[in-house]
Design a protein around this nucleic acid. Structure first.
Lengths: 112, 112
DNA sequence: ATCAGTTCCTTGCATTGCAAGTAACCAAGG
DNA sequence: CCTTGGTTACTTGCAATGCAAGGAACTGAT
């Protein structure tokens, strides 16, 4: 399934934002949920750079909690800026879906 | 709409393949149709490199026809390899849509 | 002390979208 | 002519993101 990584661009970020909408999660939990939802190859090599990006952009409330098994875990949850980014993503996703539907049903749209 | 170009990655190629499924089209016609379907910012700077990539991969039957207004037009239509690439794209697109639906409806899927 | 497991982060590459610029070809006007 | 402008095609270079691979810090157990 790693054949067309391009299709995932932007999408993975939107989905992680959604997962952090209401719950505080840390890395392993995010990976787990993404995989269960169908992103079966989702990996930490993708997640960590993404989390750092989004944190730098102020999208998160972050909480560090000590772990019995290693370094402290970083728990993430959306800030107001994060929620806004999520909304933007979802709107763009819907537009995109509609455009693709237009192409594949040979209808032209002219709404845009 | 140029805000998140990442979301378009892979998608534009899939859509162009679809447009060339049955008809011979040349650049300006492809741009026109993409725009009408909702990809309103679709541009030649995106299209030409894409066409060359796909042509190199054997995805097209190409026909050059003289133009009264300039250099000969290149008309493109899918080859068998192109059709296969289109099918692959569509399958991946559907998987992706399902996964996103799972994330956004908070359902877990486990089918993948 | 060493080892394995956990958690986090860094580095570097591949791909693609896209802006901007280049080049070839034609017709018509000065 | 030869210049201008429109048409068609291509090139170059940059930005963003996914992801593999490797590394570093912390813990408890051997």
């Amino acid at each position: 399934m790693g054949t067309d990584a391009q299709l995932n661009k932007g999408v993975l970020e939107g989905c992680v934002l959604k997962l952090l909408e209401d719950d505080f999660l840390f890395s392993a939990e995010i990976v787990e949920r993404m995989r269960r939802c169908g992103f079966s190859d989702f990996s930490e090599g993708t997640l960590y750079p993404m989390l750092l990006r989004l944190e730098k952009d102020g999208c998160f409330i972050v909480a560090r909690k000590p772990s019995p098994n290693g370094p402290p875990k970083k728990y993430y949850k959306l800030s107001e800026a994060g929620r806004q980014k999520l909304d933007t993503f979802f709107a763009q996703w819907q537009e995109l879906s509609q455009s693709i539907a237009n192409v594949f049903s040979r209808k032209e749209d002219d709404h845009a």
